[in-house]
């Protein structure tokens, strides 16, 4: 399937990004490109800096040096809500849903930036505010259908099992209709069936909506199946970057990661 889609020019480029916490160097001199419409997998042992890399992309962490170019604009740092308004959405390694809210409300929050009814209209909930709620609700219902979570839409997410929570979190990110979707270990802790479902969702999102996806994943089978390209991190450095086949044959990568029992 990878051959069918044509990949565009870079939507995101990182240039010599370094990031450290106190003495710990989380990222050292990382440069990479993410091309439009591709699925890029980031792999590497625990603590390699994968999550930190995503956090730099959407502005949670500010790199100590280097720059990020996204959709043509170069910045040394970005604030998270700026990233959101620029079309970057993400999920977290440790689920970061709004526990006290229902599935529906969680996904509705993903539409926040697209809603504009003023405070007064929201107070009286007629006219603009109500129309807007209904319009966005319709969109959210499409996502709910897509992720096949119709039956739990009114359930508070805190009560859902882990696998479903991951799915809801994906739904919340999708609700923003992102151009760039960052997924931090979307399949961690899932059984095979759940992983298959999640893989299918990821491929469909990429295929149907043309969304560019950067995903962190440990399961090499999944990585090889899903991704157009793989970047390998080890101790905060980039040690590999290429197609799944190239990565499979890269000796340094094999030593650092694939060779180690995982």
């Amino acid at each position: 399937m990878t051959a069918v889609r044509s990949l565009g020019e870079p939507i995101l480029s990182m240039d010599s990004i370094s990031l450290s916490f106190g003495g710990v160097k989380a990222l050292t001199d990382i440069s990479l490109h993410v091309r439009k419409h591709e699925i890029l997998a980031i792999i590497g042992p625990n603590g390699a800096g994968k999550s930190s890399l995503l956090n730099v992309i959407n502005g949670v962490y500010h790199p100590s040096s280097g720059s990020v170019t996204y959709k043509g604009a170069t910045r040394s740092q970005m604030r998270p809500h700026e990233a959101a308004s620029q079309g970057i959405a993400r999920t977290f390694q440790n689920i970061a849903l709004f526990k006290g809210m229902t599935v529906l409300d969680n996904i509705m929050t993903g539409r926040t930036l697209k809603m504009h009814a003023g405070f007064f209209w929201q107070c009286i909930y007629v006219g603009k505010a109500r129309d807007e709620e209904i319009r966005h609700r319709r969109k959210v219902e499409e996502i709910i259908d897509f992720l096949q979570i119709e039956s739990i839409r009114k359930t508070p997410v805190g009560r859902l099992p882990y696998g479903l929570q991951k799915r809801v979190e994906l739904g919340r990110a999708l609700a923003a209709e992102p151009e760039l979707l960052l997924l931090d270990e979307p399949m961690a802790g899932m059984n095979i069936e759940e992983k298959e479902d999640m893989s299918r969702f990821i491929l469909d999102i990429n295929d149907e909506f043309g969304t560019t996806i950067v995903l962190i994943e440990h399961d090499m089978g999944v990585v090889m199946d899903l991704s157009d390209r793989v970047v390998v991190l080890d101790y905060g450095r980039k040690i590999g970057d290429g197609t799944p086949d190239e990565i499979r044959g890269n000796q340094e990568v094999i030593d650092a990661y694939l060779g180690v029992a995982h």
């Binding site: 949670v60 709004f98 809210m101 929050t109 929201q122 909930y125």
Partner: peptide
């Protein structure tokens, strides 16, 4: 008014901030 606010966008942004402020910010709240 309170009921209207909490079932709309502003109410969701309050609850999101309450439940997980980092995630709220990443969504654009």
């Amino acid at each position: 008014i309170a009921k209207n606010l909490v079932r709309g966008r502003i109410g969701r942004s309050w609850m999101a901030t309450r439940d997980m402020d980092v995630a709220a910010e990443i969504i654009g709240i």
